[in-house]
């Protein structure tokens, strides 16, 4: 490797650092808010028609899993479109670093419920708590490239995830509010954080 190649590699490294610590504006608050609205609708349906939409824990997992997966795809698609529209190399670096945080979490959130439903369906009640704690981890990991208020939705999801597991274990199963409540508040809170026009550097 020549000196020039080494210098180019160092520049790439500095650009990556700059991208990680610069606010990523690819996430659309409207898309996250939309998932919050859908969460309200699902919770109302489950409260109104429990026999049809909240008959057992498996049904909770499938309904909320589909909502969260479609939400992830919608937000991801929106982020890619916004980044490509910017046509900015820096924005692409930032999209890549956001992907490194979100995709592994998404895979864990998808694989764990499938494995639980397949091999240990009686433990399905722990899945929403796991999802919420994974969302908390994503929020904390994204802190350097997000407005600092992102810690509040992160804390909310973390506490709800832990409390949800305790309560579901105590009650002996999932309830619409136990699952829906944290997602409704959490998604609206993230949308509020993303709509913040706070610019770097932070105050």
């Amino acid at each position: 490797m020549s000196d020039v190649d080494r210098a180019i590699a160092q520049i790439a490294d500095i650009r990556a650092q700059l991208a990680v610590s610069t606010r990523f504006s690819g996430y659309a608050p409207a898309a996250v808010g939309g998932i919050g609205v859908l969460s309200v609708l699902i919770t109302l349906l489950q409260l109104g028609l429990p026999g049809r939409f909240a008959a057992n824990d498996r049904q909770f997992i499938i309904i909320w899993g589909l909502l969260l997966a479609s939400g992830f795809l919608l937000i991801g698609f929106e982020a890619v479109v916004r980044t490509l529209r910017d046509n900015d190399d820096m924005a692409r670096h930032m999209l890549l670093s956001a992907t490194r945080i979100v995709v592994p979490s998404f895979l864990v959130s998808a694989v764990v419920p499938v494995a639980i439903l397949e091999y240990s369906p009686e433990a399905a009640w722990i899945v929403p708590g796991i999802w919420q704690m994974v969302m908390a981890l994503v929020a904390f990991a994204a802190f350097p490239s997000m407005p600092r208020k992102i810690v509040w939705p992160g804390l909310w999801f973390l506490l709800c995830g832990m409390a949800g597991i305790f309560l579901a274990g105590h009650i002996g199963g999932l309830t619409p509010l136990l699952v829906g409540g944290p997602f409704i508040v959490g998604h609206f809170a993230i949308a509020w954080v993303l709509s913040d026009r706070e610019t770097f550097p932070r105050a």
Binding site: I11, L18, R23, D89, T199, F200, P201
Partner: peptide, 14 residues
Amino acid sequence: RLTGRGRAAFAAYL
């Protein structure tokens, strides 16, 4: 701290 403008300018410089 680097300002938002500084970040953008430094990215362009790099």
